[in-house]
């Protein structure tokens, strides 16, 4: 069987399209690359969707934690503390348990115990908590002068937030937020590993990697392949976030921007 044939059969296996039975002999490199790559669809889906939605909740949480009103502040503080303070795998465990129980209450909750929605919600809340803390830190270190300037221009309320506070916060938080995006992307590997069941052998990249490791009894091929995929996607994240970072800092004078790069020359 040619490699192209394998790609056609298994390229979308993780979402249930293609050959139903997983390969059970030969276990060629091509099969391993294809199936593990197919599993990456799930990792990217979880990472991307959770990060997108998490971003908005994180902004809200950061504003909440920064608010004067204890009714806004306390819930935000506790939310962030609980999700940042406990291992993800325990969060998965409790979420799965909770969704199963909700299921017996109302049929509306049926899809929640499936990974595509249930695990996504956990990852979404988790990343919102971590990013919320990062954004909160950035909010606190917004230069006083910027806020005073906003006041002087007569900006207030939404306009002040939209045009001054929020962009500055993002700019300050961006390097740490990039790290969080990487961590979240890595965390998606835990979904099928210790959180949610895999239906009809549709799993993420780690699921297929461990399938091959189990069948070939050789962990030194599938896991490095998995690692390669993740390194590649981490590089993609870093460069995309780097582009956004450049845009966020566009208005700054060149000297300030390149200062980071100039500094090391001195000590090197």
């Amino acid at each position: 069987m040619s490699c192209w044939q394998t790609v056609q059969d298994y390229g979308l296996r993780a979402v249930g399209i293609g050959e139903r039975l997983l390969p059970r002999e030969d276990f060629t490199l091509c099969q391993q690359f294809t199936l593990i790559g197919s599993g990456m669809i799930w990792n990217i889906y979880f990472g991307l969707v959770a990060l997108t939605f998490g971003f908005f909740l994180a902004t809200a949480l950061a504003m909440g934690k920064n608010a004067q009103n204890p009714l806004l502040r306390k819930p935000a503080i506790w939310f962030i503390f609980i999700f940042r303070g406990s291992p993800l795998f325990i969060q998965f465990f409790f979420a799965y348990f909770l969704f199963l129980n909700l299921k017996s209450v109302a049929p509306f909750f049926d899809p929640f115990s499936a990974a595509w929605l249930g695990a996504l919600i956990v990852l979404f809340l988790n990343t919102a908590a971590y990013s919320g803390e990062i954004f909160y830190g950035a909010l606190q270190s917004i230069p006083k002068g910027d806020l005073e300037a906003a006041d002087a221009y007569g900006l207030s309320g939404w306009a002040r937030f939209r045009r001054i506070v929020w962009p500055t916060m993002l700019r300050l938080a961006w390097p740490a937020y990039t790290n969080e995006a990487i961590f979240l992307f890595h965390a998606t590997a835990l979904v099928f590993f210790s959180g949610f069941p895999a239906w009809q052998q549709r799993g993420d990249a780690l699921y297929y990697a461990s399938y091959f490791a189990d069948k070939t009894f050789n962990p030194f091929v599938p896991y490095p392949i998995l690692a390669l995929y993740f390194i590649a996607f981490t590089l993609v994240i870093v460069s995309v976030f780097g582009l956004i970072n450049g845009r966020l800092n566009k208005h700054l004078p060149n000297a300030t921007r390149s200062k980071l790069r100039l500094r090391p020359n001195l000590v090197r």
Binding site: A189, L206, S210, P219, F220, F230
Partner: peptide, 19 residues
């Protein structure tokens, strides 16, 4: 820095110790 940061820790743990 680039390689180890790029790999999820579980994936690394699954084969690294034996190696």
């Amino acid at each position: 820095i680039a390689i180890v940061r790029g790999v999820p820790d579980i994936a690394l743990f699954l084969f690294f110790v034996i190696a």
